[in-house]
Design a binder for these strands. Structure first.
Length: 655
RNA sequence: GCCGGCGUAGCUCAGGGGUAGAGCAACUGAUUCGUAAUCAGUAGGUCGGGGGUUCAAUUCCCUUCGCCGGCUCCA
């Protein structure tokens, strides 16, 4: 009998196993629930193969698809199976890299021709065969030189390139069947552990993401422990497609683009413009309330302005340059230089600071044609921009206010979950940055302290700051859990010096201001595009382009319905009448499809009683109300800017 | 910009070397109806633009514009 060693399991139990036993053997000894689905293990905090040997005193946790780390292993193994299938079917296809993603995986191949949809089906078929063969994944550690020789012999030039750049002397290979890949691992036990795979799309991708490198073929796929979960995944994709703002934008009449106008330029249709105006008015009111001053600047400026700012040198490729009277002008790609001119229209005392200029400022930036995407990535867009000019002493308070303001704005629009990133400078290379050590220290501290007060965890990203100052980016997570770039708060140590933006301090001396750029929504285009998807087109009542529709049962109800419509309009409700000679069911259906929150239905009974039958797009029939009561109820729902679909009349104002 | 796909009626889509079809929408008429589609009829397209091959191009080729999926980048 071999000596026993003891390992501790995730639930705190200890377990004696024979010396030299693998974690797979430990697993079989312990047989936790669903042990067949265990794909890997966490050994003293490190994710490893189940074939790894147990060591005395180990802390062992078993991982399955339900654990994030287990899922990564699962998807990573899936990508090997895909690469295996591709090489079986397409001789000469070279393997490169194939990582797991949040919802699936991809693998990049170099092949003489692009893969087609039909190829994907064949590859998927072949994957099923590899899965059915249930090849074990075998880890092998070899000297780097030996691995180079192996991949050279197989013609895998990308793998050789990767190996030549690795520092390690020993590297790990994973084999399953006759497929071998350079890989850190770990992997599932055998190909049979991945029962359900689905390939989704092919796309070009540069080797190492660099456009000077060869274009590879990237195949995207996903995989799950069951076919049912794959089906659900595909259903989620369908669901997301229905929410696509480009689709909803057309269906709901929000915006259009037209090739006669040019790519990436948004035309706001009446309904979209209404939605945008409601948001803009709210935005302006909230800014004025908080001491911002609204300003307006022209859309073009002489090149000098953008040469002074430095944009002309650093940002030239993204700027539209015009010639007017043999002078060069640029279409503004940023609002800041304009706001600086306004600040500099007179001298400012420290007593006046902070000065905060806000503007829904439209900017134009050249974006490569392939980057354009609906309203989310365009060439002309309106930033909800503001610039804060303040003293170093005021920085903390201003940052706190801005952060709080930004989150209040987002919560108003129904975003409750955020990812916050704090980008600070790379401490190794202080020379890359504008601004002094003291300035950076002050700014990074203010941003960090502001975040701490909010109690929302932020991801600190060393070296991710732009050269002119540290910043906070807030990503909001929508109803489907997708992230949208929202507010950004950026310090700028560059422009105050370039423009010599100063204030007169209590010492009568001129000092450079501290300048903070910030947006709360990002841009109107991107924000409303994202918002459309977030609400799936069913905007809350305060935002809905049409808040109520008055529906008649027959023509004889038109005069009464017209009076109700007039009353709604007089109460400031965005209402429309549908007095056509059609069945109510048709009118209801169309109003539902248009996502109109409230329907006021009038028939004989209502006409006689001076009432309306109230219907809500989700809650359905709400009952019969006196006209005034129904309007008052609607008014209250609008005024409280609620995100919930139907509220009781006494719900209090949340803002 | 690059790789791949796509562009046919307002929308969704079918078709295909011999100059085009469906559903919905629109329009006209009938119907006057109680909460997600009443019935019938009519009209609608230089098949994204330009060039080429061909007796003949919407179909094949080239080019250009736009859109989609990615790479890259960002509000």
């Amino acid at each position: 009998m071999a000596t026993e060693i003891e390992v501790t399991l995730a639930d705190g139990r200890t377990c004696g196993v024979p010396e030299g036993a693998t974690l797979a053997e430990v697993l079989h000894l312990v047989k936790p629930p669903k042990y067949r689905q265990v794909v890997a293990a966490k050994q003293n905090g490190k994710v490893v193969d189940l074939s790894a040997p147990a060591q005395p005193g180990d802390h062992v946790a078993f991982l399955s698809f339900d654990d994030e780390e287990g899922r990564e292993v699962f998807r990573h193994s899936s990508t090997h199976i895909m690469a295996h299938a591709v090489q079986d079917l397409f001789a000469g296809a070279k393997i490169t890299i194939g990582p797991p993603l949040a919802e699936g995986y991809y693998y990049d191949f170099d092949y003489k021709r692009p893969f087609t949809e039909a190829d994907l089906e064949a590859i998927e078929q072949r994957m099923q065969e590899i899965i059915a063969a249930d090849h074990p994944f075998v880890r092998q550690e070899v000297p780097r030189q030996e691995a180079i020789a192996l991949f050279q012999a197989r013609g895998e030039t990308y793998k050789v390139e990767m190996l030549e750049q690795l520092a390690e002397d020993t590297v790990s290979l994973y084999r399953e069947g006759d497929f071998v890949d350079l890989c850190r691992g770990p992997h599932v036990r055998s190909t049979g552990q991945i029962p359900a795979v689905k390939l989704l799309s092919v796309a070009g991708a540069y080797w190492r993401g660099d456009e000077r490198n060869p274009m590879l073929q990237r195949i995207y796929g996903t995989s799950y422990p069951s076919a049912k979960q794959v089906r659900e995944h595909l259903q989620r994709l369908e669901e997301a497609k229905k929410r696509d703002h480009r689709l909803l934008g057309r269906q709901l009449g929000l915006f259009l683009t037209d090739e006669r106008a040019g790519a990436g330029l948004i035309y706001w249709l009446p309904k979209g413009a209404t939605l945008r105006k409601v948001i803009e008015r709210f935005w302006e009111d909230e800014h004025v309330r908080r001491g911002y001053q609204l300003v307006i600047i022209p859309h073009i400026a002489r090149d000098v302005l953008f040469r002074t700012s430095g944009h002309y040198d650093y940002y030239r490729d993204n700027m539209y340059v015009l010639e007017i009277d043999s002078d060069e002008y640029v279409l503004k790609p940023m609002n800041c230089p304009g706001h600086i001119l306004i600040y500099q229209s007179r001298r400012h005392s420290y007593r006046e600071l902070p000065i905060k200029f806000a503007e829904l400022g439209t900017v134009y930036r050249y974006e490569r044609s392939g980057a354009l995407h609906g309203m989310l990535r365009v060439r002309g867009f309106t930033q909800d921009d503001a610039h804060i000019f303040c003293t170093p002493e005021q920085v903390h308070e201003e940052i706190d206010k801005v952060l709080q303001f930004a989150l209040e704005m987002l919560r108003t629009f129904g975003y409750e979950n955020f990812q916050i990133e704090l980008s600070v400078r790379d401490p190794e290379h202080p020379e890359k940055y504008a601004g002094s050590d003291a300035e950076w220290l002050m700014a990074e501290r203010a941003l960090g302290a502001g975040l701490d007060k909010l109690g929302i965890p932020a991801k600190r990203q060393e070296g991710e700051a732009v050269f002119y100052g540290p910043k906070i980016d807030i990503k909001m997570l929508d109803a489907l859990g997708r992230g949208w770039q929202g507010p950004t708060i950026q310090f700028d140590f560059n422009l105050p010096k370039r423009f010599n933006i100063t204030y007169v301090g209590s010492d009568s001396q001129e000092h450079h201001v501290v300048m903070i750029h910030r947006t709360t929504l990002g841009s109107m285009e991107r924000f409303i595009g994202g918002l459309t998807e977030h609400y799936a087109g069913a905007f809350p009542t305060w935002l809905a382009p049409v808040q109520a529709k008055v529906l008649t049962i027959t023509d004889r109800h038109i005069p009464a319905a017209q009076r109700v419509l007039d009353a709604l309009l007089a109460a400031g409700v965005r209402a429309e009448g549908d007095f056509r000679n059609e069945k109510v069911s048709l009118k209801v259906r169309e109003a539902q499809i248009e996502q109109v929150p409230y329907m006021f239905v009038l028939g004989d009974q209502e006409m006689a009683a001076g009432s309306v039958a109230l219907r809500h797009r989700r809650a359905g029939h709400l009952g019969v109300f006196a006209v005034d009561a129904a309007i008052a109820r609607l008014r209250q729902v609008i005024d409280c800017r609620t995100n919930s679909e139907e509220v009781t009349a006494n719900q209090s104002d949340r803002t």
